[in-house]
Computed example of a mutant assay.
Amino acid sequence: MKKRGTVEVFDTNFNVFTTGKSHIADHKELLYLCTVDDSVIKSAINYTGSKHKLLPQLLPLFPTEYNRFVDLFAGGASVTANMIKFGHLSTYLVNDIDKHVIDFFQYLSNVSFESFKSEIEFEINQYGFSDTKKKGYSFYGVDSSKGLSNYNKEKFLKLRDDYNNSQSPVLFYLLVVFGFNNQIRFNKDDEYNLPVGKRDFNKSMENKLQRFMNILQTNNISFSSVDFRKIKIEINDFVYVDPPYLITDASYNENGGWTEQDEKDLYQYLDNVNQSGAKFALSNVILHKGKENELLKKWASKYQLHILDYHYNNSNYHSKAKFSETVEVLITNYFPVEMNK
């Protein structure tokens, strides 16, 4: 029950019935009260393409019976975190090609929150970064809309150089905290290259980190950082797939980060998953700014196409386009329980 919310235990003395041959002392009746927390767990990092806003639509479309959950392109791992939180009992594999992120998650899964928080606060003090959690924005002569970029700029450049020379999980997290839009970006030389941002390690960010770490440390999670083609799937796995989107302009598509051949290889990989008897669910964008993913459209005709906010089976998704420039879909090789009700 602790995975679902805050648990309180109440007890009262209760007379036990015996035939006189047994003596049972301190017999009580117990009441367990669980105040359920249905809020979505956000990742500790601000990852491009995070699915935390879509999770209320995605989770009901996921299967309920499987032995292992495979997050093939985990990104910020918010999907895995919420699969765990909402009671899906299985083992978990969190995989992403970005080794910096996976190393960070692995570190968080093995260190206490209080210990990590102490490391963060020590480094913030060492670099001389702002600390609005203790001092507020007015101490630095700014408000929240103007932000702290001018105050933290030189300190951030020092942090960035230090991390690029000697990478560590603590410095990685500080780059996310003090970096532009709290995002992650590395150049072709594997150097973090975003400029300073407007925020610091505030209370909201601390709470988000703590909730995320609590999830990572309560379950059977494995981590890997390999190309998706190398992940072997078993018959009782459920594979969630949120790859780079071929027709969008996110940073992961720069410099050939995700090619048409990668897209075709992924479709073949999922066809093999289907043939193995395992289940998969693929998140993707089928229409974006007037551009249509024809490859996806053709391949998805073999499976179940669900337009988010609606539930269609291989239907005409163009009706959704008038509401948005981007049409997000989920493609599954199974019929979700929600559709069978």
Rank of each mutant, 00 (worst) to 15 (best):
V101R: 01
Y252H: 13
F201C: 10
V196L: 07
T48Y: 08
Y66H: 14
Y47R: 02
K289Y: 08
Q106N: 09
N67G: 15
D103M: 09
G257D: 05
S315Q: 14
I41N: 06
D249H: 15
G49S: 08
A44T: 11
N214W: 02
D265R: 03
D37A: 04
Y151A: 09
E292D: 02
N274I: 00
E328V: 10
F156L: 05
K2R: 13
H288Y: 14
N193G: 09
K153A: 14
L174D: 00
G87E: 03
D227Y: 02
S130E: 07
Y173F: 11
E65L: 06
A25K: 15
N316C: 03
N219E: 15
C34T: 15
V70A: 04
M213L: 10
D265L: 12
I24T: 12
K188E: 11
N253L: 13
M1K: 11
R199G: 02
T91Y: 07
Q126V: 13
F186Q: 08
R229S: 12
D271E: 13
Y334I: 03
L330P: 04
K158W: 06
L175G: 01
T80L: 03
E154W: 00
T64G: 10
S283A: 02
A81Y: 03
H88I: 06
N340E: 15
P244E: 05
Y240T: 01
S149F: 00
E338V: 14
F62I: 09
Y334C: 01
S222R: 11
P169V: 07
F116P: 12
L287C: 14
Q210D: 13
N82T: 11
F178V: 05
D161T: 13
G75L: 07
T48E: 09
Y66R: 06
A278R: 01
H306N: 15
K146Y: 10
V177Q: 01
S138W: 03
N125Q: 15
V329A: 05
T332E: 09
Y32E: 13
L108H: 10
G87T: 10
D98R: 12
D161W: 01
F335Q: 15
S222W: 00
S112L: 04
N193Y: 05
S301P: 03
L308T: 02
I286E: 06
L282Y: 03
K264E: 12
D242Q: 02
K302R: 01
N150L: 15
S224A: 08
K53P: 07
G87A: 05
G257E: 03
Y252R: 09
G136D: 07
T248F: 00
R160G: 09
Y267M: 14
P195F: 05
R185S: 13
N110H: 14
Y66A: 09
W258N: 05
L266A: 05
D190R: 13
H288L: 07
L296Q: 02
N313R: 07
Y173N: 11
H318R: 14
N182A: 08
I221V: 06
F172Y: 11
N152C: 01
S276H: 02
P195V: 06
I307A: 14
L330R: 13
L175N: 02
F238R: 01
Y47F: 13
K28T: 05
F280C: 00
R229H: 08
P195N: 01
L61M: 11
D38P: 03
V142F: 08
N207T: 09
I97E: 12
